[in-house]
Amino acid sequence: MATKILTVEDDERIRSAVKLAFEEEGWDVSEAGTGEEALAKFSLELPDVVLIDIMLPGIDGFEVCRALRRESDVPIIMVTARADTHDVVAGLEAGADDYLTKPFAPKELSARIRAMLRRARNSDGQTLQRIKVGDLEISPEEGIVLKGEEEVHLTKTEFKLLVELAGQPGKVFSREVLLERVWGYDYFGDGRLVDVHVRRLRTKIEPDAANPRYVVTSRGMGYKLQP
C-alpha cells in the first residue's frame, strides 16, 4: 500500500507543486487548505505522515498539531518561515517531530519523510531486550513504556529517543549523535530537535520534569539516561 501524505498548506500553487513532486516519489497525497479541513481529512484518511504549514488561516498550524497529537502519534513535519524564530521550538513543543523551512527542496522533504517512516516502522534491529531503569520498563519490541504499572504514551520519535538513550545507560549522547540516530540527520541537524524532544519526554516519564531523574543533561555535551 502506498504511503499516504496529508499536506496542509493554504497556498494552492505550492500544494499542487508539492503534490506533483510527491507523486513522482510514488506517494499518495491528499491536500487540505485550512486547519479545519486538515482535521476532518485526517480522521477520514488516516495518513502515514502529516505536513503542516504553520501559517494557516483560521486555526493555525500549532493548533492543528496539538489537536492531532491528542488522538494520534502520527509523524508530523512542520513547515516554518525561518529556522531561528520561536516558531520552530513552538512547533516542536506542539508535538511536531521535525521541521523544514520554506522554501525547501521537495527532495529534502522526501528524505525527511523516508527517515521518519523508517523510525515509525521499526527500531533498526537494535537490541530488543526489555530495559528496566528505576520505575521505568521499556519494551522496544512492543513499543511500550511502563512507568510503574502505568503505560506512558510516547510518539514514535520520543520512543526512539528513549530507546537510544536506554541502549547504553549512563553514557552521554551528544546532540549530534542523537540527531543522526533518531532523526537520520547529519552533523548539521538542528540540536533544538533533541532539546525539545527531551523536554517532551521528561514531562511524560519523569516524576518531576524540572529535576529529571532519568534523562539527565550532561552540561555542554549532551544527554544520558541515568541508570
Partner: peptide, 9 residues
Amino acid sequence: MTLSASVEV
C-alpha cells in the same frame, strides 16, 4: 517553493 517543487518534477 512552487518553482523548486516544479523544477524537481
